[in-house]
Computed example of a mutant assay.
Amino acid sequence: MNLEGVEKTMLLTLFAKAQHSQKKNHRFFDQKAIDVISQIDYDFSVADKDRFMKYGVISRTIVLDEMVSDYIDKNPLQQLSISVPEWIPDSTDLTTDL
């Protein structure tokens, strides 16, 4: 598999989340990241050595989770509204697993 750009960034983000989720003292747990990474045949050896990338992903995930939790706590009756960009073809067929 030869990935570049956005696709590679997304895969390496999942890799970092999967690795962190499997640590003993993890701050978050992402089973979907573990499942996806376990099914992909990709050489993660370079990403495995990139501590700063992994720490960046982990830090951003923790901060974003805290921000979302705070918002939900302050606005418990607000509905979640997801806007699908117009450039996504046939967006009526999209489903989410929230």
Rank of each mutant, 00 (worst) to 15 (best):
N2L: 10
L3N: 04
L3T: 01
L3Y: 06
G5L: 04
V6A: 08
E7R: 08
E7N: 11
E7K: 10
K8Q: 10
K8L: 13
M10N: 10
L11D: 02
L11M: 09
L11Q: 02
L12R: 04
L12F: 02
L12V: 01
L12W: 02
L12Q: 06
T13F: 03
L14A: 07
L14S: 05
L14W: 00
L14Y: 07
L14R: 07
F15C: 01
A16R: 01
A16N: 02
A16C: 05
K17D: 02
Q19F: 03
H20D: 04
S21T: 12
S21G: 11
Q22P: 06
K24H: 11
K24C: 09
K24G: 07
N25H: 12
N25T: 11
R27Y: 11
R27F: 12
F28Y: 15
F28A: 12
F29A: 08
F29M: 11
F29T: 12
F29Y: 14
D30F: 00
D30T: 03
D30M: 00
Q31L: 10
Q31D: 05
Q31K: 13
Q31H: 06
Q31P: 05
Q31N: 10
K32W: 04
I34R: 00
V36D: 09
V36W: 08
V36I: 15
I37D: 05
S38R: 14
S38G: 14
Q39W: 09
D41K: 15
Y42L: 07
Y42T: 07
Y42M: 09
Y42W: 10
Y42F: 15
F44S: 03
F44I: 08
S45D: 08
V46T: 07
A47I: 05
K49A: 14
K49V: 04
R51M: 10
F52W: 04
M53G: 02
K54H: 10
Y55N: 10
Y55C: 03
G56P: 02
V57K: 03
V57P: 01
V57Q: 01
I58C: 03
I58T: 05
S59R: 05
S59H: 04
R60D: 06
R60N: 11
T61D: 00
T61N: 00
I62Y: 06
V63S: 12
D65L: 07
E66M: 10
V68Y: 06
S69D: 14
S69V: 03
D70G: 12
D70V: 09
Y71V: 06
D73I: 12
D73E: 13
D73L: 14
K74P: 05
P76N: 09
P76Q: 11
P76R: 14
L77S: 15
L77E: 15
Q78M: 13
S81D: 09
I82N: 14
S83W: 11
P85A: 13
P85F: 00
P85K: 09
P85C: 11
E86Y: 08
W87P: 06
I88V: 14
P89S: 15
P89V: 10
D90F: 12
S91E: 10
S91F: 07
S91R: 14
T92P: 01
T92D: 14
L94P: 06
L94S: 05
T96M: 15
T96D: 05
T96W: 13
L98A: 02
L98F: 08
